[in-house]
Amino acid sequence: MSLAELICPAGTPAALRTAVDAGADAVYCGFQDATNARNFPGLNFTPEELAASVAYAHDKGAKVLLALNTYPPAGKVDLWRQAADTGARLGVDAFIVADMGVADYIARTHPGIRLHLSVQAAASSPEAIRYYCENFGVRRVVLPRILTIPEIRQIRREIPCEIETFIFGNHGLMVEGRCSLTNYLTGQSTNMDGVCSPASDVAYARHEDGSMSSQLAGFTIDCFGPAEKAGYPTICKGRYTAPHRPEGYYAFEEPVSLNLSRLLPELIEAGVHAFKIEGRQRSKSYVRGVVTAFRRAVDDIRAGRPANMADLVALTEGQKQTQGAFETKKWR
């Protein structure tokens, strides 16, 4: 049986402590800059905060994984290198990287620290994953959310590293890490600036009838009826009109969150080494609720008991959940 480590998000030191106290095996986090894919205002860690957080986690037997999972613009690698050096000095247990240049720098400069391949690298074939393992010593791959469990099982047999899969949270998967929709509207790049739908470009308006519209950079991307559940203001979850669909429809995907709680035993059996919970931008309340629920479920499964899983639908986007491609390729 795989170890089924629980990898949990933290956007602030308080959230990190909450995740550790709720039973996280490892917590992933980032600095307050473009070196990670949750570069949101007021979120993330200063080096001083990370130092204290690493000490807290290690004291309680948990690991800290530093996300350096964005792509430096050509010739501007210093910020990423400095972040790696700082992380190494502060004693993080692994770096989560996407860019080959960043991976190469860490492999050469900090060879004693584990490298995990971010979902942003979108490595989904054994050939691609082996390339990162052989050239940069990657020890774990975070798989894109486009594979079925039989496909994951097959990949596991053909690669020399551990597998981590997302099990819960936001489900924006436009060929992971390669989405340029936000860049098209705002000029900010998800993969280089580290933020999709920057808050400074987002506006909400309530209308007389109780409906609410969300806008990104001046473009309306959805309008929710008075009783309708809402979603994030990302273009991939926008509802658009088209000549053949004048009533408006979700052209790419619907506001919905991934929840694989019912598939945990199969994922473990397929050889998945670690389970990732999305949500560094979410509150301590979310971290506490989701980590506690999955801790209990994983412990139940490992002890041979049926998993006793709390209902997490209230925390999902649009209050809807899916098993996505993990269940069937028919999911678009």
Binding site: K229, A230, Q281, R282, A314
Partner: peptide, 11 residues
């Protein structure tokens, strides 16, 4: 005690 995104999703 409550999650802001969840409260936003639920309107």
């Amino acid at each position: 005690e409550e999650d802001g995104d969840a409260a936003f999703f639920s309107r």
